[in-house]
Amino acid sequence: MELAQPLIEQPFYKRLQLGDWAYAVLVLAAAAYSWSLYNHYMDGYEQAILAGSAIGLVALGWFWKSWRWFFPLAGAVALLGINAYHGELARGQTAFWLKYALSSQSAIMWMCTLFFLATGVYWAGLIARSGLLTRMGSGLTWAAAVMGAAGLFVRWYESYLIGADIGHVPVSNLYEVFVLFTLITALMYLYYEAKFAVRQAGAFVLLVISAAVGFILWYSFDRQAHEIQPLIPALQSWWMKIHVPANFIGYGAFAMSAMLGVAELLVIKGKLKDRLPAADVLDEMMYKAIAVGFLFFTIATILGAMWAADAWGGYWSWDPKETWALIVWLNYAAWLHIRLVKGWRGEPLAWWAVIGLLVTTFAFLGVNMFLTGLHSYGGL
C-alpha cells in the first residue's frame, strides 16, 4: 500500500494571482506618482512613511482580498471630489456634486447616514432571521466605509487648498479622529464578519459605530468642528501620521471586542441565543480583536513616547493622557495574560471586555473633557 504523500504548500509568491499583482502595481504606481509630485515638499521621514504605507497597502490587499477593491474605489471617489474643485475651495459651496456628495463634509455626512441605516438593517435582519437583510447591512457598512475614507482623503486635499502652511493629514482633532475611529472599527468588523461568517454580530458592533456617528453629528452642528483649522505647533510633526492611526486601530479593536462581549453575554444568558452566533465563536472573535488591538496600541504607545522625546525632551511625563494610555495597555495586557496563561474563557472575560470599553472611552475622550495636561489641545 502506498503511503499518501504530504502536501507541500507552495511558496507565498507562487500563490499570488494576476489580480494580486495588478493591485500591487496600481498602489506602487500611485505612490510613485505622489512622490514625483510632492517629494520636494517632504523630508526623509515623510518619504519613508510614503514608502512604508505603499508596502503596507500592498500587503493588506494580498492578505485581505476585499481590500483590493475597497481601497481603489475609495481613492477613485476621492479623486472625483478633488478634481471637481479645480483648485478652488469656494467651489465646494457652488458645484452640485461637491456640495451634496463629494466634498469632505458631504462624504462624511453620507458615511454617517449609511452607518445609521446599516445599524437598523442589521437589527432588522437579526430579529427577523433574514440573511438578505444582514447582507444588506454588510453592503451598507461597506458603502459607509468607502464614503468615510474618501471624505478623509478629500479633507486632506481641502486643507492644502486653504494654504500650504495649513495642510495636514486629517487626524489632528476629535472630529477627524472620530471619523477615523468609525472607519477603522467598521473595516475591522467587516474583515472578521467574513472570516467567521457571522453577519448577525453586526447588529452589536454597529451600535458603537453609531454612537460615534452621533458624536460626529453633534460635534459638527453644535460646535462647527468640521471646519478645518491650522495645526497647533505641538502637532506639526510627521510623528502624527503614524502615531494616531496606530492608536485608533487599537481603540477600534477594543470597542469592537466590547460589543462582541455584549453579544456573547446575551448568548450565555440565553437571550437571542437562537439568532446570534455560538458563544465560543463570539469569544474567539473577541480574543482576536483584543490581540490585534493590543499589538497596535503597544506600537502607538512606543511611537507616542518617541514623539514626546522629540517634542518635549522626555519619553514619559505622567501626563494624564499618557497615564490613562498606560492603564488601557495594562488592562488588555492582563486580559490576554489571563486568557493565554490561565486559560479563562467565556463570561468573565466577556464582562472584562465590556468594562474595558469604559476604561478605553475615558482614555480616548474623558481625559480630554475632564483633565488637563500636555495633551489638552484635544479638548471639546
Rank of each mutant, 00 (worst) to 15 (best):
A246L: 12
Y100V: 03
V328T: 13
M306K: 10
T94C: 11
F71R: 08
N247S: 14
I127M: 09
L217E: 03
W64V: 05
I302Q: 12
I184L: 14
A194D: 14
G125H: 00
V169A: 14
T185A: 15
A333K: 05
W329H: 14
G61S: 12
E347K: 14
Q17V: 00
R129P: 01
W110Q: 00
A124H: 01
A95D: 04
L207D: 00
G81E: 04
G270H: 03
A258G: 10
F296A: 12
W335Y: 15
P348C: 14
I166F: 13
S159W: 04
G261T: 03
A363M: 07
G131W: 07
G343E: 11
W316H: 07
E158A: 14
E227F: 09
D310G: 12
A78C: 04
A59C: 10
G137Y: 04
T185D: 06
I338M: 14
K65N: 05
S130I: 03
I82C: 10
S257A: 15
Q47D: 05
R129D: 13
V281A: 13
A30L: 11
T119E: 09
Y287M: 10
V77S: 11
L282R: 02
W35I: 06
W312C: 10
P11G: 05
V281Q: 12
V77E: 04
A118L: 11
M286L: 15
G19H: 07
Q47F: 06
Y192Q: 08
A128F: 07
A107V: 09
M240H: 07
P348A: 07
I249Y: 06
P245A: 12
S36D: 04
G167Q: 15
D319Q: 10
G343S: 14
M111S: 09
L98H: 02
M285Y: 05
K195R: 15
Q236E: 10
A107P: 06
L349A: 11
E227K: 13
W156Y: 12
A309L: 10
G346R: 07
G366P: 05
F297W: 08
F297N: 07
A32H: 10
L336W: 04
P277C: 09
I249K: 04
A291K: 11
W352Y: 15
T360R: 01
W344G: 05
M286S: 07
A4H: 06
P72K: 10
A51Q: 05
D43L: 08
S237M: 04
G313T: 03
G343N: 08
Q93R: 13
S130W: 02
M240C: 13
Y219D: 12
Q236M: 13
S172R: 03
P245N: 09
T182L: 06
V179Q: 01
L326D: 01
L79H: 01
V341G: 06
P320Y: 08
I209Q: 02
E193D: 13
F153Q: 03
F181E: 03
Q236L: 11
G120T: 00
L98M: 12
P277I: 03
L358E: 08
